[in-house]
């Protein structure tokens, strides 16, 4: 289903969910939950947005049923830890590549995805100062290295 333009801001979270469908359904679930919450704040009044959000809600309810025996879904604290570990692992992979001077598309994506997942963690409550800093750094690094690679420059 096409994403209405009013909900453009949630497209990256929905894409991350799709990419994790098989690899890590818990990550996919919370990305969609975050997208749902954000989407409702953006626009849940116009018919096209309502239709889209109802469909997303149907998907979330089905996922929740399918994952009902998974503690990361049934217990908030476990889910929070799962997402945090995953985001950190992704951040560390990209950071290690960065420090080793290995610049490539995959590390840019890892930096960017870790920043998106740190946004997603806010479904559990306010982000810690450490997570806010990691998110800021990861987003900045992703943009900077992406631009360097695009312009054929070597990141410093």
């Amino acid at each position: 289903m096409a994403l209405p333009p009013q909900l453009k801001a949630i497209q990256h979270y929905l894409r991350t969910a799709q990419e994790h469908e098989k690899r890590d359904p818990v990550v996919a679930y919370y990305c969609r939950l975050y997208a749902m919450q954000t989407g409702m704040k953006l626009d849940s009044k116009t018919p096209e947005c309502r239709k889209f959000l109802v469909k997303l809600m149907d998907q979330l309810e089905t996922m929740k049923k399918d994952l009902s025996d998974n503690e990361s879904i049934t217990q908030e604290v476990v889910g929070n830890a799962h997402l945090e570990n995953y985001a950190l692992k992704m951040f560390l992979y990209a950071d290690n590549e960065d420090r080793a001077g290995q610049f490539h598309k995959n590390m840019v994506k890892s930096f960017y995805t870790s920043s998106l997942l740190l946004d997603v963690i806010s479904v559990f409550g306010e982000l810690s100062e450490e997570n806010i800093q990691h998110r800021k750094y990861a987003r900045w690094k992703a943009t900077y290295i992406h631009n360097c690679l695009k312009n054929g420059e070597t990141p410093q």
Binding site: L33, M36, Q37, M40, S44, K45, R50, L53, V54, M57, L60, E61, K64, I73, T74, Q75, E76, G79
Partner: peptide, 27 residues
């Protein structure tokens, strides 16, 4: 949008909010 249209829209919105909080409740 007339008043009927407005009430239908807000009822649907409420339903979505309720489904979201049910989803969150069980987390």
């Amino acid at each position: 949008m007339g008043s009927v249209g407005t009430s239908v829209a807000s009822a649907e919105q409420d339903e979505l909010s309720q489904r979201l909080s049910r989803l969150r409740d069980q987390i």
